[in-house]
Amino acid sequence: MQAINFRDCNEINRRSPLINRTVKAVSASMEPASLENLCVLYHSADFIVVNKHWDIRIDSKMWYEKQTVQSQLRHRFPELADPGTYYGFRFCHQLDFSTSGALCVALNKAAAGRAYRCFKERLVTKAYLALVRGLVDCGKMTLDFSIGKNTSEGKTHMMCIGGAEGCENPKPCQTELQVLEYGSYSGDPVTKVLLQPLTGRTHQLRVHCSAIGHPIVGDFTYSLRADSAPYRMMLHAYLLRIPLEPEPVDVTAPDPFLPSLDPHWAPQRQLCTVEAALKGLLQPPAGEGQSPQHSGTEKKKSPPVETEEQIAQCQQWLCEWGMD
């Protein structure tokens, strides 16, 4: 698809209704978050799953942080806010400020407790879409780098892989990566990938992709402030599956990395569709053997010990949402 010059949009709109609709779709996909543009993917009596916008915090205690998912929810569903909680809504998990996609919110204490148990017992399946810099050679791989907090001067808000200078208390973590498409972004070679985190460390996907020499497009932090041209970081929580009873939460957030939505992204060669990659992820062939470096299924059955960060978060959840 030819890139659209937004300065010429008025002239284009007069000429073609079809292009007019395309321009509106592109503009909508790139517009910043507001109180009004919350996208709800799933809504039941117990849970809401929203398609979190890029570059918005889930919640904040800072008075100047006006745009948060919490404030969007209060604006859209004021009757569902729980005055017994600090933020009004119980977020079942976290997404980075720069990451978009499926985010689950519990609407009562009992529902939060059920979701907490699924996360604690590693029963939740998550998959992310990303555009990464360069052409990833291997079609499928397991990234197995321990991650710890970076204590180097000027990088204390970052994480790093074990063995790096200033890396404090690294913990084991694994990510499955599958190549979907090769192409370019603003003329530079990139690869579209599906990422499945098998563990849950802070910034895990961003650090793992950077560790193999393929940082996520638009990751301002882990490019050391160099990758600033893209309008957003290209990481999106595509699939969220929580096996709750009696009704599981099984949601996909629409793929934002399409040339019809972002004309800077130009796919050139497809290796695997998202649907096929998810089918393999969710329904691995019975009895199929796996090599040690691709033992994602085994790792999910026998997950590593909880990280200190996860234990602290779980304790916080239990304190606030203790089961009656």
Rank of each mutant, 00 (worst) to 15 (best):
A115S: 15
A45N: 15
L95E: 08
L318D: 13
P248Y: 09
D324C: 07
S44C: 07
K140G: 14
N37G: 08
D227Q: 05
R57E: 12
F145L: 01
S186P: 00
T85M: 02
L239R: 13
R14K: 15
K171N: 03
R241D: 13
L103Q: 08
D227S: 09
Y185P: 01
E245V: 13
V50F: 12
Q290A: 15
I212Q: 00
L41W: 13
P215K: 08
V249A: 13
A211T: 00
R117C: 02
Y222N: 03
W54C: 14
S295W: 04
Y42K: 03
G280N: 11
A25D: 13
H53V: 11
V274Y: 06
A229S: 08
K300W: 04
N5S: 08
E121F: 02
A229G: 01
L281E: 08
N20Q: 14
P284L: 05
L103E: 05
P303V: 11
K299E: 05
L198F: 04
P170N: 05
A266K: 13
S152Q: 15
M234E: 01
E121S: 10
N169S: 10
S27F: 05
H43F: 09
L80S: 11
V251R: 06
H208V: 03
L107D: 05
E168R: 09
R90W: 12
V105L: 05
S60Q: 11
R122A: 04
S291Q: 10
E181H: 07
C167Q: 03
C319D: 12
A286K: 10
S260L: 14
L205D: 03
G213E: 07
Q196K: 11
N10M: 07
V69T: 10
L194C: 05
A28C: 05
P267V: 06
H208S: 06
G183I: 02
I58Y: 07
G200D: 06
R114H: 12
P284F: 06
G163K: 03
R201Y: 02
V217K: 10
T307Y: 05
V193E: 00
I212R: 00
Q204M: 09
R206K: 07
D227T: 11
